[in-house]
């Protein structure tokens, strides 16, 4: 009797051990699979960011937000280490954008208007994909604390095989992305910006795309260059990325992950003589938010608005107009705007 009990206890012990071992193995395999998927997703994103920078391509793209639909022809050339890009609207008013590295030139041919401006941010995911161990450690935090990645199944876009990748925000202060990445070239073929309810706020999608080895310079020239006409030109203000000017203002409640990338002054209203505005630019590595501060004008803006992906919040404070703009939820721009105040012992600029 005693031996039978011992035998049963022994069997239970080994059964329990077997169950524990199987559970650990299953858990370990799942963790490993998740880690592998995470690495695969990061590798795919890294491949895409490299491809959009270093690939020649020509294509036609549709861009939709709300009930607005634009068809745009895009030419992207990489030559001698420099990026040149030209976008031409194919429906609605004539609009053209010429990009040379960080400089943007907007052209309205029918209005004889040209405006230049300069992008101020570093390439996204530089931190995540730099190869620097210290930066790589920071990148871990980026994916763990702000966004996560989900690798999904295949799909077809513009007649090409694509891999699907979701960038999922881990809080409600930023939007998510659904990406379709070309299997062959790594280029971004389609992107949906997703709000907190899972609804698409804006979409871009290539309907046709080619990746020639070389792109003639002529393809990047503006359609019209009527020298006999006087063009209204607004030149890019001289600013350096990374500039952080002193300010009499402060923000007390910045959502997690957003870091100040630039603070300076720039002309407003297309630079047509309406003065200057103080500009703060924040980035979380993907989403960006601008804060504009200027003396209160004739038409102050108070409240919020949203157009496509971009939310706007405005308030007046001490005879100054504060406007916060970003491709983030309304709660983010409002939180930043409402937490702004004038520093103690300082007067507004």
């Amino acid at each position: 009797m005693k031996r039978a009990n011992e035998s049963r206890a022994g069997r239970r012990f080994w059964l329990g051990a077997l169950v524990c071992w199987a559970a650990c193995l299953s858990l370990g395999t799942q963790v490993q699979a998740d880690a592998n998927e995470g690495q695969a997703a990061q590798a795919l994103l890294q491949r895409m960011t490299h491809a959009v920078r270093f690939t020649n391509y020509v294509g036609v793209c549709v861009y939709r937000f709300g009930d607005n639909l634009q068809t745009i022809r895009i030419v992207h050339q990489v030559k001698n280490g420099h990026r040149h890009e030209r976008l031409v609207s194919l429906n609605g008013p004539e609009r053209e954008i010429i990009r040379a590295d960080a400089q943007t030139t907007r052209i309205h041919p029918s209005e004889h208007f040209i405006a230049q401006n300069l992008a101020l941010l570093n390439t996204p995911f530089d931190t995540a994909f730099s190869g620097d161990p210290a930066r790589a450690a920071a990148a871990e935090g980026f994916w763990d604390n702000i966004y996560s990645l989900e690798l999904l199944g295949p799909d077809r876009v513009a007649g090409r095989e694509a891999r699907r990748l979701n960038i999922v925000p881990l809080d409600h202060f930023r939007y998510g992305y659904r990406l379709w990445i070309d299997e062959r070239s790594g280029l971004l073929l389609r992107s949906d910006l997703i709000d907190e309810a899972g609804a698409s706020l804006e979409q871009i999608m290539f309907t046709a795309i080619e990746t020639p080895d070389t792109i003639p310079d002529q393809w990047l020239e503006p359609t019209r260059s009527d020298e006999a006409t006087t063009w209204h030109r607004v030149h890019a203000p001289r600013m350096q990325p990374g500039t952080i000017m002193a300010s009499a203002w402060r923000i007390d409640d910045l959502p997690k992950g957003f870091k100040l990338a630039f603070r300076g002054r720039q002309p407003v209203q297309g630079g047509r003589g309406d003065g200057f505005v103080e500009h703060w630019l924040y980035s979380d590595g993907l989403a960006t938010v601008s804060v504009y501060i200027r003396p209160q004008g004739k038409h102050p803006f108070s409240g919020w608005s949203r157009r496509g992906a971009v939310s706007t919040f405005g308030r007046t404070l001490d005879d100054y107009q504060i406007i916060v703009v970003g491709e983030v939820p309304a709660a983010t721009v409002r939180r930043i705007g409402e937490s702004m105040s004038v520093r103690a012992q300082a007067t507004a600029p």
Binding site: M48, L87, A102, R106, S191, E202
Partner: peptide, 26 residues
Amino acid sequence: DYLIKHSERSATGQMDTALPYMRIIG
């Protein structure tokens, strides 16, 4: 105007694709 300025200034920070320029056109 603010939306356009913001898109121009932050263009290189948003996946560095043509999306911000498309927004401007839109």
